[in-house]
Computed example of a mutant assay.
Amino acid sequence: MKLSKKILATAIASVLLVGCSMPGSNLSIDDKHVAKTNVDAQKQLSDRVNVFPLTVNNISEFKAPKISAQVNKKLEKELSNYEYHIGAGDILNITIWDHPELTIPAGSYRSASESGSWVHADGTIFYPYIGKVPVAGKTVSQVRSDIAQRLAAYIEKPQVDVSVAAFRSQKAYITGDVKTPSQQHITNVPLTLLDAINNAGGINADADWRHVTLTRNGKDETLSLYALMQRGDLKQNRLLHNDDIVHVPSNDAQKVFVFGEVNKPQLLKIGRVGMSLTEALSSVGGINELQADATGVFVIRANKNPDAKKDAPVANIYQLNIKDATALVIGTEFNLQSYDIVYVTTAPIARWNRVINQLLPTISSVNQLSETGLNLREW
C-alpha cells in the first residue's frame, strides 16, 4: 500500500513538472523591476483593436483605389507658360546687332560661356555704357528689354539679343535607388519628375517606385512612379523647381510577415506590382491543412497615423474565412501593405493534440511505475 502511494505521488509530481518543463525559451519578470503605469488611463488592448471580416459584400471597401490613366491639366498649363528665371552664377550671352564693339564674340579659343557675362552674387552683371544691370529673378526677355531701353541713350534703336550661355544657378537633386543619383540643372527646357528620373538612368530593380518622395520647401509629397509609368496617371508628374529633392527609396521596407499555421513561415518582400493576401499565402506554401483553423486567417495592420489620438485603435485586424477555398478569390482583392502581419491560427483539435503529446511521456512513465508496483506487490 505504501509503495502504491509513493508511485502515485511520483506520478502526480511528474504531471506537474510537465507544465514547468515545456520546451522553448522563457523570460520571467518575477525578479525584475516592472515600471508602473496608469492602469485607469489605459484601455485594454482588445478595446483598441478593430476586427473586419472580409466578405464578398465588403471587400470593395478595403481594395486599393483603382489607378487609371489621367491627364494633368495643371502641369500642361505650367509647361506652356514656363520661362526660365535667371539667377546668380548663370552666364548670359548678350549681342548688340551692328555694334560688334559691344559684343565679345566666342571663337575657337573661347566658348560662349567663357565670353559671356557672369551673374554676380548680388544678382547683377556689368555692361559697357550702362554699368550694373540687375538680372536675377528676371527672364531673358525682361533683361533684353531693360538693356535695350538703357542703351537707347547711347545707340539709336539698339537691337539686343540675350540668351543664357550656362545654367548654373538652379538645381534639382535626384537621390535614392536610381542608376545615377545626381544633381540636375534647371534650364530653359522644363524639367519634370519623369524627365529627371530618365536623366538619372531610371530606377533600380529593388526600388520602391510606389512611394517616391518630392521634397519642396521642407514639405514632402509622395508620388507613384508605378501609377505614372505603368498606368498612365499623368497627375503623378511634377514640374521641378530649384532645390527640389526627389528621393526613390529602396523596397527594403516593403515587407510582410507570415506566421502561424502555414507550411513555411517567413518574411516576404512586396514586389513592384504589390502583393495580395492570397499571393502571400501561396508564397509560404499555403496553410497547414492538418493544423490550421481555416476560419482564422488574419491580417494585422498597425495604425501608422502619427496624428492619431491617444485612445485611437492601435491596429486593425482583417479576418478571412477560407474554410470554403473559393474565398481565396476574396484574398486576391485584398492588397497587403508594408509591415502587415499575416497570421493563421491553430485549430482547437491541434492545440489539444499538442497538450496530449506533451503528456504522453509522463503517462507512459506512470504506467511503467504502476506496473512495477503491481509486480513488486505480487512478488
Rank of each mutant, 00 (worst) to 15 (best):
M1E: 03
K6F: 00
A13I: 14
V15G: 10
M22G: 15
M22K: 13
S28V: 06
D30I: 14
D30H: 12
N38A: 04
V39Q: 02
L45R: 06
D47M: 10
R48P: 00
V49A: 05
V56A: 04
N57H: 05
K63C: 07
A64M: 11
K66D: 13
V71R: 15
K74S: 12
E76P: 11
L79W: 00
A88S: 15
D90R: 07
I91H: 06
T95C: 06
T95N: 11
L102S: 01
A106G: 15
A106E: 09
E114K: 06
K138W: 04
V140G: 10
V143L: 04
Y154D: 05
Y154F: 10
K157E: 12
Q159R: 09
S163D: 12
A166L: 09
Q170F: 07
Y173I: 01
T175D: 00
K179V: 00
T180S: 11
Q183K: 08
T192N: 14
D195P: 09
A200W: 01
A200F: 01
G201R: 12
A205L: 12
D208G: 07
N217G: 08
G218Y: 05
D220I: 02
R231V: 01
L234E: 14
R238M: 09
I245D: 03
P249L: 00
P249T: 00
S250P: 03
Q254S: 11
F259N: 14
F259S: 10
G260E: 15
N263G: 15
Q266D: 08
L277N: 12
E279C: 08
V297R: 05
V299M: 03
A302R: 11
N316C: 02
Y318A: 09
Q319L: 13
K323P: 00
L328R: 13
N335M: 13
L336R: 01
V344H: 10
A350T: 08
R354S: 10
Q358M: 09
L359M: 12
P361G: 12
S365Y: 08
L369K: 04
S370D: 12
S370K: 00
S370Y: 00
R377K: 11
W379A: 12
